[in-house]
Every structure is written in structure tokens, then in C-alpha cells.
Amino acid sequence: MLNFLVTFIPRAIMQGIPLLYGSTGEILTEKSGNLNLGIPGIMYMGAISSVIGAFYYETFRTSMNPILAVLIPLVCCLLGSFLTGLLYCFLTVSLRANQNVTGLAITTFGVGFGNFFGGSLIKLSNAEVPAIVLGGTSGYIKTTLPFANTTGWFGQVFLSYGFLAYLAIIIALVASYVLKRTRVGLHLRAVGESPATADAAGINVVKYKYVATCVGSMIAGLGGLYYVLDYSNGIWSHNAFGDRGWLAIALVIFTIWRPSVSILASILFGGLYILYLYIPTGTEMAIKEIYKMFPYVITLLVLIIVSLRKKREDQPPMSLGLPYFREER
């Protein structure tokens, strides 16, 4: 049993990290009143942008500088997801387009963009299998602490991850602190709850919405990068990222908009997501599909429980999904 846990928990954590990035980003975004359903697409954008950056660096340099090998995909990823977030903001905040429609369009666009350029790169690399392998970059990104392997099960469960995993947790904690304890967080929550109130209090609603959404997108994009360059050892293949973006959005509801809760919840979701791999062999495929439903079923349960409790603090930001226009009465 202990052996099972020692192998299962790290797998669950590694599955959970992209979800944690995604949900932290989405929580920040939603706190500003923007329901960004484009997160799955933005995570794809983050992933493919980093892949493109890493691909060119790996292909056209004979010797790799470890710092650049990490920085280049990172910067590309942030840039790609930032631009997508900016597009979302421009459409929904400046042009006041419907947020749901825009978000879904961005998801479709992001997934398509990722697969298209992924496909192009696969052609460029003339690989035999339909995938890009960026082992070099991944190696650097996955670097773990030198003593991780020497500390037994403790090291395996807690220390065996690349720096991006710890970064995800730090970002979630920082986001949580900012939202709860700082003036910026207070203003951001006010914007999401009641933009008219925030506006009357002299808060620049448009700025907060833009910044929160773009920063949120960049954080979510890192989830894509982590998945490809760390979890999958730098292998990009068609649709590999799957529906993890939606899982991240489900996590937002599951954690009732709390990034700190999301740290554990994402690991739980990650574990549930791969649980089907651990059921006894020979079980029917259909059963496996049922296992994959677990995260969503749990999210539904949380929604039901939260709705029954009727606590005002547990409700989504009041103006979530609504555009704001000052002179509208």
C-alpha cells in the first residue's frame, strides 16, 4: 500500500500541477468579473508557444545554455498566453462582446492553433512518429534538487519535481494572499462583485479587468508549458493536452474561488484523472470512462452543497460574466 501511494501521489501531483496553474489563473480572472472560458485554449497557446520557442532553440543551436533553454520557452509561453488573454479582454471589456461566446471561441481557436503549429513543427522535424521530442529542454526544466533521490519515500513524494511544480504552489499562495490581504486584491474583488461600486470608488475597472485577465492567462499558460515540457518529457503530440483546461475551470468552482484550496484540490483532481490507470487490468474500457467522470461529478456535488448552504461568501463574484459600461443605468 505504501509503495502504491509513493508511486501514485507523485503522479497525481504532476497531473494536478497544470490544473493548479489553470485554476489559479482562472480564479484571478473571474475575480475581476471576467468568465474566461477561453482558459483551455489559452493553456494550449501557452504550451505551443513554449514548444515553438524550445524547438527553434534546440534545432538551431548545437550546444545549449541551460539558462537560455529554460528562459526561452518560458518567455514564449508567457507571451503567447498574454496575447491571447489580451485578445479576450479587448473583445469582452473594450468591445463588450458576450464573454461566454468569446471564451468558447478562444478555446476553439487556441486548440486549433496549437494543433496546427504542432503539426507544422512535426513536419519540419521530419520525425518518424507524429510527435515533437524536446528532450534537451525538458531535461533542464525537469531538473530536481540533487538530494531528491537520496531521501527515500519523502524525497519521492515531496522533492521529485521540477521547479515549475513548486512555482505553481508559490503562485497559488501568493494569489491567495493578494486577494485576501492586500489593497489590490480588495479592489480586484470589488471590480468583480460590483464594477459600478468600484468605479464610483475611483478604481479603474477596465485596467483591473485587463491586468487580472492577462496575468491570469499567463499563469494558466504556464500550465500548458509544464504539461508538455515537464510532465510529458518534452513530447508534443496531437491533442495531447486533452480536456485539462475544462478540469481547471471545474476546479475554480470546486474550490469556491480560493487559490490556496486549489493546491490540494488540484492534486485530488489530478489523482482522480489518472485513477483509471490503476484499476485492475482486464476491467472493461467503459468502466475507465466512468472513472474519468469523477472530477466533474465531485464538482457538481460541491455546487449542490454550496447552493444549499446559501452563504453569500460562497457565491461566484456577483458581476461574473457581465460587461460593464459606466453610463449604462
Binding site: 459600478a196 468600484a198 464610483a200 470608488a201 478604481i203 453569500r312
Partner: peptide, 19 residues
């Protein structure tokens, strides 16, 4: 009233101030 319902009185009052 331009108040945020889930905030306390204090939070509402200092909202928007950049002390």
C-alpha cells in the same frame, strides 16, 4: 447604494483608497 455586499463596512469604506 454603491456598496459591495460581501465586504464589511470597513472594506467598503477604504475601497479605492491608495494609502
Amino acid at each position: 447604494f454603491k456598496l459591495v455586499d460581501v465586504f464589511t463596512a470597513t472594506e467598503n469604506i477604504i475601497l479605492g483608497l491608495n494609502e
